[in-house]
């Protein structure tokens, strides 16, 4: 049973590792679907909490999978999920990095870059929608997200922890008041 769980972590996250164009945000929609609806590792509510914890902690947002692994099988699960997400993409990147200097400036180089960029952006937008959908979020969540977006666009170097703390405080106060 436990081994089955560990294998399913590998089977779910390895493919995501290789399609996460544009980084972690592009696969959040897919990870949410797999871990909430298909495998039922966590509830929709827990998933949203894990997402927020992963964003508040240092490191790539895709450390979300470390938390999913932890929920499924403790330390072993956390290690396996993390390796499953980071090793395949790192190996691919290593191989490409070795060849990269050889082919710098070629057409396919530019074509890859311009062809994949809009897919990455579309996936990130889909990830935003997916997270709001599972959160069952009301108007208050949308307003906080929009305000946070404005602040981040205005002050890109501001430590995001301040904004996350501000969002937390605003929600806790206003949710009680409304």
């Amino acid at each position: 049973m436990r081994e089955n769980l560990l294998w399913s972590l590998v089977a779910v996250f390895v493919p995501f590792s290789l399609v996460s164009i544009g980084g972690g945000p592009s696969i959040f929609a897919g990870i949410q679907h797999q871990s909430v609806e298909v495998h039922r590792w966590v509830t929709a509510r827990e998933f949203v909490d894990l997402f927020a914890i992963a964003r508040a902690a240092p490191g790539p947002g895709s450390m979300l999978v470390t938390l999913l692994g932890w929920k499924v099988a403790g330390w072993t699960g956390a290690v396996i999920a993390t390796l499953a997400l980071f090793v395949p993409s790192s190996l691919l990147c290593y191989g490409v990095a070795r060849m990269w200097s050889h082919y710098r400036g070629r057409h396919w180089h530019t074509a890859l870059e311009t062809g994949l960029a809009p897919i990455g952006a579309g996936l990130i937008l889909a990830g935003v929608v997916a997270i709001f959908r599972v959160a069952g979020a009301g108007a208050l969540s949308w307003i906080i997200a929009a305000l946070a977006c404005l602040i981040f666009a205005w002050r890109p170097k501001l430590n995001p922890l301040f904004v996350l703390a501000g969002g937390a405080a605003a929600f806790a106060i206003l949710h009680g008041a409304i």
Binding site: G22, I124, A137, I144, A148, P160, L164
Partner: peptide
């Protein structure tokens, strides 16, 4: 309960961080 509310607010703010990236990508696309 107020921890739950706080986490919802932090999650919403974190989504704001994603929106910035998405808007940048959408603008260049």
């Amino acid at each position: 309960p107020w921890i739950q509310d706080g986490m919802s607010g932090a999650a919403a703010a974190a989504i704001g961080l994603l929106l910035v990236v998405a808007i940048k990508g959408a603008r260049s696309a």
